[in-house]
Design a protein around this nucleic acid. Sequence first.
DNA 1: AGGATCGTTGACAGCGCTACCAGCAACGAC
DNA 2: GTCGTTGCTGGTAGCGCTGTCAACGATCCT
Lengths: 365, 365
Amino acid sequence: MGRKRTKSGKIRLAEVAELAGVSPITASRFFRNPEALSVAKRTRVESAARELGYVPNLAARALASQRTEVIGVLIPSLTNNVFSDVLRGIYDASENSRYSIQLSNTRYSILQEEKLLRLFLAQKPAGLIVTGIDQTTESRAMLEAADCPIVQIMEIGPNPVDMMIGFSHFDAARAAIAHLFAQGHRKIGFVGARMDPRVQRRLDGYVAAMKDAGLHDQRLIVTTATPTSVTLGGALFADLLARESGIDSVFCANDDLALGVLFECRRREIAVPEQIAIIGFNDLEFMASSVPTLTSVRTNRYEMGSTAAAMLIEAIEGKRPEEPVLDLGFTVIERQSSQAQRAAASSRAPEWAPAVQNDSVTNDP
Amino acid sequence: MGRKRTKSGKIRLAEVAELAGVSPITASRFFRNPEALSVAKRTRVESAARELGYVPNLAARALASQRTEVIGVLIPSLTNNVFSDVLRGIYDASENSRYSIQLSNTRYSILQEEKLLRLFLAQKPAGLIVTGIDQTTESRAMLEAADCPIVQIMEIGPNPVDMMIGFSHFDAARAAIAHLFAQGHRKIGFVGARMDPRVQRRLDGYVAAMKDAGLHDQRLIVTTATPTSVTLGGALFADLLARESGIDSVFCANDDLALGVLFECRRREIAVPEQIAIIGFNDLEFMASSVPTLTSVRTNRYEMGSTAAAMLIEAIEGKRPEEPVLDLGFTVIERQSSQAQRAAASSRAPEWAPAVQNDSVTNDP
DNA sequence: AGGATCGTTGACAGCGCTACCAGCAACGAC
DNA sequence: GTCGTTGCTGGTAGCGCTGTCAACGATCCT
């Protein structure tokens, strides 16, 4: 097999072209735009490539074409369960595409995000997925100047840089509070940690709902910048109880905190939901199987990731969506921890039905 | 600023060299091996690069040097909390290096792993991190033929391909059972899900310990190939109880299952640890704050990731570790859920001390 | 003094692929 | 018949960087 000056057994596009009896550029086209070839050449190149076990050299491709096939993803945390679901969606959706994912962790710092963004943009990514809508002015300018499609994920808001997919944390929080109101609760506490922009907007939604009902009281709100955890949920709830009495329910900014609150109630022998109702946020898997089962606001995290990646890839290939902003919504999943008091007596055992509610499990292939 | 044939404002190495008054190759050396330059030229190139805002073109570099600065990482799951800790370690350790992480999800399939491995290897990665020691023969051969450093993570065993970092799941399971024996438990159930090779080895450790004590009974073991979840823990435990009576304790192959078992006990009003003791595996954060707090086997997941990446980078740069196999060990963290029966009466409240035990929280930057 | 060695620098020649443009045959419109 | 037009193919010329080798002066040794 007559190679020219290539060393040991490396298969270049030139070898494939030679075996197929076409020019290198024709072989190249086969990989990028097969429809442009006549059927005869197409099959010849295809079988030659297979026979030689040809694998394209991505570095050479990137250098020659002046663009990469990399999708950059900027997320604020690798620890948070929420992001692992989103990421799984992103990886799944990109898996059978030509694009590869380049992930970076901003650690909830918009300055770090700006730095990483600069790094990414310098490599001319094919597309970018960024978290949230609270970039620095500088980041925002870079994103707007970038000549690749961009998807903002996790929430929606005005002025998308390009595309946007998420839901309204403000509305979701309002819905959570509305649910508690409907169950007869009035003195609703708020427990939040980390306080990133999305948690902040959940707090805003809570405050708005409470104000609308004339029930707002700053002393019902306990927050901290500390990263969230189950343990922290218990501690913050303890703070809340120490500060204020007569609280009948708690809205937790995420499910880990809610579980912590539940445990703290158990520790103090506070009956849930009879004495205190609990509602969490995100609807992680365990919420459906705790005792009592925990009410939460379900968010479509996996879909957020997979749809974002799918939209991005479509846009890279020229098929922009007609509607660039996609609201994935949320659902309040009512469970025992927030049932109205009259129903509470019979709520201990019968309604537990994991088979119906653990759908988040089945997403994992 | 006299550029030759370059279009709009793109800064190449040649521009930097020109401004610094050196040849391009000298400028190139500044980025790869600054010590080889005289101090004078070094500072000249440095300031020129900064002034022009030069960012190297990675594709060109990869093409010219015939190697990439990519570390490939193959993990079996993006959902599992365990891997998100490992990943965080990997990303943190690689963050300030020149290497970037390329992540792929094998979904617990060694065939998928083989396919991804082939893909990775074709791009000549600088190094590779693979999960576990159960590759296909073909994968094994590819790994051994690869001309880059490789770290196997998550467990240790004989015949490392190259480097290896983890701990013995077999020994860790034995230690868990030994702990239960020490607390006076004899009829110890095993609850496992997913049953990947590492969970299988935990089961092997359990079986070995039970056999040594003359207590082995196949009916005490409940497993499923289904992905793990809290809900599933409860369901499997229910199966176990239905099948066998007189069980005094349960070893759960991971913490999610353990939490599910705890909830199932609560649902059935089985006192923990008085009637049933529970021990989990991994020591996730919530284990320290449940009620009762849950005993678990702590594993060093973040360190596993960060050390693996650090070792790999060292090896890529020529500094191989003197000892290629690193055992990170494990620790049985005793909590209320496995306390001996005599002590159980006083175990309800006093020993709960989250401040001491929630160290996994502080790892998150 | 002559030779060997070291540290520093530069010239040259690609790495493997694709953008760009040109060429050619086949076809239809005028 | 001439002139586009379309569909397919190939030649040329790099993309921006680094491996290799050679050259040079300075230093050290015999």
